[in-house]
């Protein structure tokens, strides 16, 4: 069964996003929230890393984007914007949740 990985720190502050990418398996999902949302924005130094993760579905928490003044147009194509209801659904749908803190 696939796993849900959560990342809540900016990739420019901590290495948790990079660690997550090194461990995430094909077919799993990554949810970026809190300052982790910066990993989902276009034109940064880590954009390529996210795009090179094969077979991994990325989600970003919409309310945390909005709280930081970032519009949906700033999100990398293919990253799905979700709300808290979808966050709960993702946690329930995946067999494990791994928090990279």
């Amino acid at each position: 069964m696939s796993e849900l990985h959560t990342v809540n720190k900016s990739p420019f502050e901590k290495s948790s996003f990079a660690s997550c990418l090194e461990h995430v398996l094909e077919g799993s999902a990554v949810l970026l929230y809190e300052d982790g949302i910066y990993a989902a924005t276009k034109g940064t130094a880590v954009e390529g890393k996210l795009k090179s993760a094969q077979g991994v579905k990325f989600y970003v928490l919409g309310p945390d984007l909005k709280a930081r003044g970032l519009g949906e147009d700033r999100v990398i194509d293919g990253v799905e914007i979700v709300d808290y209801e979808a966050f709960v659904d993702l946690a329930a749908e995946h067999s494990k949740v791994v928090a990279w803190v």
């Binding site: 809190e34 808290y84 209801e85 709960v88 659904d89």
Partner: peptide, 16 residues
């Protein structure tokens, strides 16, 4: 933001 995120997750999960 962790306590806020946890609160909103918990509240949403309960409401669902």
């Amino acid at each position: 933001q962790a306590s806020d995120s946890a609160y909103l997750f918990t509240k949403t999960a309960l409401e669902k």
